[in-house]
Write a protein that binds this DNA or RNA. Structure first.
Length: 448
RNA sequence: CGGAGUAUAGCGCAGCCUGGUAGCGCACCUGCUUCGGGAGCAGGGGGUCGAGUGUUCGAAUCACUCUACUCCGACCA
């Protein structure tokens, strides 16, 4: 992508409405524009990051055996009356009427609808286990939206729903999602710690939140230090096998959110291993049994010929919240520092002197070669001073900058700057592209 | 929903107290010079001062009403 042809409205000054660093940087880097309280347009750069996150979530959901579909944002009130939640949900649910005065709502979640789909088509235990998910916009009329897309009223959510014949099967479904979540967050560059959580108004007795540690997190959390360094299950994990040992390993050390915190148990953790910090909730998984299948009559026929209510669980990740969460975890004074896996561009070619034949030639060539190699590369071909180009590249957080200008070219050299470490390498023109590919590919491939 | 604020050019702000020609920086446009860390000079465009009502000869400025947005608290992917 040529920057001169792109749409990247970066701001030099920080808009006053932004309080936390991720919100400030998302506005300054031209990722989002606020349209109303808790409502944002995703500008090209932000949308690009959002899509990369979504793709990783999809890959890991699919790997775990979940199946993707897509449900509508507008739902019928009748469906929600069946579960009893139409009255229970309160003002957070956006309610509306269509032209025929039918009561509708903009979905805050989809348990009712997925249960309706399930009960229509699935009749036999032989079709289980089943896990269906979608990635769709949700609306919750928050009392107080804040922190940019961290807590917005309209937000994107990946919500998966598992269906099993019995509790034992449901626990296994829960475990598959648990492992899928560990892998998903790590591939996004994050360290997300599973913590026992309150299951809230939806109910259920197996409930874990995945928490990213960050100073600006909304909730206080307490954990054993070893949870932070623990290696995640690899890509060869057999999701049809026994995941119990992995779950045991990940749930044996102390980790809890404020609501579930047990000071006495935390005190048993060695003093030098006690971590009390703040965290951002980026995912929540829980098992709730027959809470919806019972009132909505979602049953399957078991091996004994008898109908049983299906055991369900639900599993959420908020991509539009992950974007600021990643920024909270990775930024410095100059701007965002994206992990390669979600960076809007993997590299930027900075032509320091547009209009100079040599500089143009070398830059165009490097840009073409990187593109041909499949690198997601931006080419800064704007006819403007070098300072602004560096500032923009740093602000939007592109992991690698290939800096090309007349001064270096006289010696046959160009420079690669690593955004994260600040390290700079000077190397011959011909080697730079290969070097960049060598740096980027290992971080991008699904080997984590 | 309780408490506290803010609203003047795309963004950041001054002007308001003490009513009288709407300003500054950045951004934008034109030209020239530039280009190795947010370039310089010269010229230029852009505003029903959030909306309404009132007071006044005259309102960005004073009064009242409304709306939007932000922050703190209670609630939440």
């Amino acid at each position: 992508m040529r920057l001169s042809r792109y749409f990247l409205p970066v701001l030099k000054e920080t808009p006053k409405e932004a309080e936390i660093i991720s919100h400030q940087l998302m506005l300054r880097a031209g990722m989002i524009k606020q349209q109303a309280a808790g409502s944002y347009s995703w500008l090209p750069l932000g949308f690009k990051v959002l899509n990369k996150i979504v793709r990783i979530i999809e890959q890991e959901q699919d790997r775990s055996g979940a199946v993707q579909l897509l449900m509508p944002t507008l739902q019928s009130a009748d469906l929600w009356r069946e579960s009893g939640r139409y009255d229970a949900y309160g003002d957070e649910m956006l309610r509306l009427k269509d032209r025929k005065e039918r009561e509708m709502l903009y979905g805050p979640t989809n348990e009712e609808m997925i249960t309706d789909i399930f009960r229509t088509y699935v009749k036999s235990y032989k079709d289980l286990p089943l896990n269906l998910y979608h990635i769709q916009w949700k609306f919750r009329d928050e009392v107080r939206p804040r922190f940019g897309t961290m807590r917005s009223r309209e937000f994107l959510m990946k919500d998966a729903y598992s269906f099993d014949i019995d509790r034992e099967g449901a626990v296994k479904a829960f475990q598959r999602m648990f492992v899928a979540y560990l892998r998903t967050f790590r591939r996004l560059g994050l360290t997300a710690i599973p913590m026992r959580a309150d299951s809230g108004p939806i109910g259920g007795d197996l409930s874990y939140e995945f928490i990213v540690l960050a100073d600006t997190g909304e909730s206080a959390v307490f954990t054993h230090a070893d949870m932070v360094e623990k290696p995640i299950p690899g890509p060869d994990t057999d999701f049809r096998g026994d995941l119990e040992p992995i779950i045991k390993d990940w749930t044996s050390l102390y980790a809890a959110t404020e609501e579930m915190h047990d000071a006495a148990k935390f005190a048993e953790v060695p003093a030098d291993k006690q971590v009390s910090a703040r965290g951002i909730e980026v995912g929540h998984i829980f098992y709730f049994g027959t809470k919806y299948s019972k009132p909505m009559k979602a049953t399957v026929t078991g091996p004994d010929g008898k109908d049983v209510e299906v055991q369900m669980g639900s599993y959420g990740i908020g991509p539009t919240r992950l974007v600021p969460a990643i920024i909270e975890a990775f930024h410095d004074d100059a701007g965002i520092v994206w992990p390669v896996s979600v960076a809007p561009f993997e590299a930027v070619v900075i032509n320091l002197k547009v209009g100079d034949a040599e500089s143009d030639g070398a830059s165009e060539k490097a840009y073409a070669e990187l593109k041909a190699a499949g690198i997601d590369v931006l080419y800064d071909d704007r006819d403007q001073g070098a300072g602004g180009k560096f500032a923009t590249a740093d602000l939007v957080g592109i992991p690698y900058q290939l800096i090309i200008g007349p001064r270096g070219l006289r010696e046959g050299q160009v420079e690669i700057k690593h955004r994260k470490s600040g390290e700079r390498e000077t190397l011959p023109v011909g080697d730079a592209v290969k070097r960049l590919i060598g740096l980027i590919e290992p971080q991008r491939l699904d080997t984590i």
